[in-house]
C-alpha cells in the first residue's frame, strides 16, 4: 500500500496535474488582456514597376512601417510575429494576399517600432492588373504563447493605389 512505487506514482501524477493546471490557467489569463494597437504604413517610393517577360506585373516599393504592439504582450507571450500584407482583388482572383514584410518581436521593449524598408518578398501579380490598382495594406500579428492558445488579429489600412504607368 505504501510501497516506493505507489508513492512515486502518486507524486508524478500530482505534479503533472498541477503543471497541466498551471499551463491551462496561464493560457486562460490571456483572455483578460484587451490590447489596443496602432499601425501606420507609408509607401515612400515605387522603386520600379514593370511587366515580367511572362506577363506578370511586379512592383518594388519602399515602405515606412511604424506600429505600437506593446499591449499584446502578457506574461504568457513568447513572441509576436508581425507581417504586412498587400491585399487586392482582380478579375481572376477574388483575393490576392501577399506578404511584403515580416518580423519577429521577441519582447515588449521591441514592440514599438518603426522600420524603413523595401519589400522583403516579391510583389508579383498573377497577370497584368497592377497598373492603377487600389489595394489594402494590412498589418497582421500572430501572438505565440509560452503555452496554450495562439491568437491573431490585424489592422486593415485601405486606400493605397499603384501608379498608372510602369516605371
Amino acid at each position: 500500500m505504501h510501497s516506493f512505487g505507489y508513492r512515486a506514482n502518486a507524486l508524478l501524477t500530482f505534479s503533472i496535474t498541477i503543471l497541466a493546471l498551471m499551463c491551462a490557467m496561464a493560457s486562460v489569463s490571456d483572455n483578460f488582456n484587451t490590447p489596443t494597437t496602432s499601425a501606420q504604413v507609408q509607401v515612400l517610393n515605387i522603386n520600379w514597376f514593370q511587366k515580367q517577360p511572362n506577363g506578370n506585373d511586379e512592383v518594388s516599393m519602399t515602405l515606412n512601417i511604424s506600429a505600437d504592439l506593446q499591449s499584446l504582450f502578457t506574461w504568457n507571450t513568447k513572441q509576436v510575429f508581425v507581417f504586412l500584407a498587400a491585399e487586392y482583388e482582380t478579375p481572376k482572383n477574388s483575393l490576392n494576399q501577399i506578404s511584403l514584410w515580416d518580423g519577429i518581436i521577441p519582447t515588449k521593449e521591441h514592440a514599438k517600432f518603426w522600420i524603413h524598408t523595401s519589400n522583403k518578398y516579391r510583389f508579383i501579380d498573377q497577370g497584368s492588373n497592377l497598373r492603377g490598382k487600389e489595394y489594402n495594406l494590412t498589418m497582421h500579428w500572430h501572438v505565440m504563447p509560452k503555452t496554450g492558445k495562439m491568437s491573431a488579429d490585424k489592422i486593415v489600412m485601405p486606400g493605397y493605389r499603384l501608379p498608372v504607368e510602369y516605371r
Binding site: 510575429f81 478579375p91 494576399q97 506578404s99 498573377q126 500572430h142
Partner: peptide
Amino acid sequence: HRVIEVRERQNTE
C-alpha cells in the same frame, strides 16, 4: 509552416 501568400480564384473559390 506559415502561409505567406494566398490567391483565391474568383469563380471556383
